[in-house]
Amino acid sequence: MLDLDVLTNPDNIVAAEKCIKGLVKVTQKVFSAIESDFEVQNQEMTISCPDGIQKNSLILKAKPRFKNKKLEIKSGIANYVALRPIIGNNICSNAITQTETGFNINIASLENEGLYLLDYEYNIDIANFIKSMVDMNKTFDTPIDENPIYWMEAKLKHPSVLRSEYGSFDLRNIDFNIDMNISGDIKTSIPPVFQRELNAVIEIIKETDPRTTIKRRYKYLEAKGARGHNKDDILEVIASLQTLFEPREFAHYVDVVDDFKYTTCQRGANYHERVPFPTWPKFMKVVSRTDLNLNKCAANGKVIYHKYDFQEEIEKIFGK
């Protein structure tokens, strides 16, 4: 029997409301402080997830007569505040003074009936915010061997909470990580002779008897000679392989499609190992992003791994 309380999770709605309440409070303080001298013509309220900030942009029209010389806005210490005229790009440098309790707008430097853009940013507890607002799901594995595809989905848990009397909040650039399995791909593309060469090098390094070292050195050169066109030293080959895992290189073998966009990738620490060696990744972590808001409550996307192109590149390193 389905438990409706578990399903609809009312406790979580309360937590989400609490998160938004803090953001609305800032907006409320700004609105009530400026209403005597400005009319808010338009606004955008966004949560920039990677930066963990609440960003608000207000288009303000100054009233025909100012009632105050200075407006004190006690909305807490802001990360960033700027006021600029809509026409022209110059920030009104004297118009804003940041204070210990928020910021002041110095009216004296502004024109009556002028149009202004007020931007202000505040830090928020983003981890808690995302946890309360967004349900994130992804596949941990894929049954597709050829060009594996990993799905991901993000959706709002309680969209109505994003709506406030001042407008609705948009969530921008919600990060999503997918761990792609690449463990078998290097092995598949490496010629068996290179593995003989690896063994030979290990034997040389371990050998303490100089006479035997010469024999082992010969065995190593023999294995190296059989490798192919690329005659680089083994450490150079290993170093070339390592560069394939650099974000700029590996990005060539990844596509992110549908509602998500590719951001970056990095070597996945081998969390499935007891000792997570970071040097030879069995997984690559692909980071992609999506936006959610009241007009787009859910997003789904795919990370496609172009495995064969990656394997082809490895083969080139070995001079195949």
Binding site: G184, T188, I190, N199, I202, I238, H272, F277
Partner: peptide
């Protein structure tokens, strides 16, 4: 240098097939 090469060898061996990963 030795650990670099040994670990690379281990890496190759542990992922003999993409469908089985030997943890230890």
């Amino acid at each position: 240098m030795l650990t670099e090469i040994e670990l690379f060898k281990e890496y190759l061996k542990s992922s003999e097939s993409g469908k089985i990963l030997l943890q230890n």
